[in-house]
């Protein structure tokens, strides 16, 4: 568990991060979202003390970070920097191995870990291990950057706009991969982005920052359904709100008995998928399946009712 306790950063006379407090539960993803210059990177870098807080403190599992020597603290925390920050003169393998080498892992263990991570990120180890960063595409570079941050299985992973340079399709895939990897490894992640869509899709918790202050912090449904102020509402976007809300709710909870025509949707799909299936096929209801067997149906009325009642 990471506890951020009234942490503040003041440069000269400007307060860049203003008394931010939040708790990050172990094994969850917290996404910090905000406009450019709102202090997201500064907040993130105060967690691994690349920036020293002006006041306030951070505790990792109860341990105050101020009391840990910076280099030892940072070896425990994975950090994927904004813009991958790979070492241009080291191969992909050596880049990924950077922290394990600092920790003095044995050679064969490092080699196995490198191959495991490359495979996990869909990069054939034999083909990519010995390449230099300049010989990778932008998306591959970013994946190697994330793999490097994960290499030593850190307690905590900090990611600063890790998917910034990717096109929408690769970006979506990378987000799914990250979700899957995080669930598999049970890592705790704090991720920074300025894209609300990404925040809602990835976050177990979403924190919205504006002018150095944390203006709202909660599950994505809550951010979408009940924005704390006009700024959050604007970030969520009025027109997108219903769809964003629907994309967060699985079909599972609204299944009712009965039959319907057309192709079934899986019960794990979102209401947004069910709605578009209804609209596209021109029906008022579509069947729902679980493990290949139809278990009921979902109706347009139920979806509409869910939106009207919010959370």
């Amino acid at each position: 568990m990471i506890e951020i306790d009234r942490i503040t950063k003041v440069y000269d006379d400007t307060t860049v991060v203003d008394e931010v407090s939040m708790t990050v539960e172990t094994g969850t993803i917290t996404v910090i979202v905000g406009t450019s210059g709102s202090g997201k990177t500064t907040l993130l870098r105060m967690i691994n003390r690349l920036v020293e807080p002006s006041s306030g403190e951070v505790r990792i599992n109860g341990e105050v970070t101020r009391d840990i020597p910076t280099h030892l603290l940072r070896r425990r925390i994975g950090y994927a920097i904004q813009g991958h920050g790979l070492f241009p003169h080291h191969t992909v393998a050596r880049n990924i191995a950077a922290v394990p080498r600092l920790l003095g892992w044995p050679k064969d263990k490092i080699a196995r870990r490198v191959d495991e991570l490359l495979t996990l990120f869909g990069m054939e180890p034999a083909a990519f291990r010995d390449r230099y960063p300049a010989e990778l595409s932008g998306g591959q570079q970013q994946r190697v950057g994330v793999a490097r941050a994960l290499a030593s299985r850190p307690d905590l992973l900090l990611m600063d706009e890790p998917f910034g340079a990717l096109d929408p399709i690769i970006r979506g895939r990378a987000q799914e991969d990250l979700r899957a990897i995080q669930q598999k490894l049970g890592s705790t992640i704090v991720l920074v982005t300025h894209d609300m869509e990404e925040a809602i899709r990835l976050g177990d918790r979403v924190g919205v920052m504006d002018g150095g202050r944390l203006v709202q912090h909660g599950p994505p449904e809550e951010i979408v359904a009940r924005p704390a102020n006009a700024f959050v509402a604007e970030m969520v976007g009025d027109a997108e709100r219903p769809m964003r809300l629907l994309s967060l709710i699985p079909v599972r909870g609204l299944v009712e008995p009965g039959a319907a025509g057309g192709d079934p949707v899986p019960e794990g799909a979102s209401l947004r998928d069910a709605l578009s299936a209804c609209l596209w096929t021109g029906r008022d209801a579509v069947p729902v399946e679980r493990g290949g067997a139809v278990v009921g149906r979902i109706t347009l009325d139920a979806i509409r009712g869910r939106v009207e009642h919010r959370a």
């Binding site: 690349l50 940072r74 920050g85």
Partner: peptide, 22 residues
Amino acid sequence: PPAAVEAARGMGMTDRQRLWSI
């Protein structure tokens, strides 16, 4: 590259390690 130097700091290299290996 500043990002590489920053990454080296962020992963816990000491000043000396960063100087010699990056």
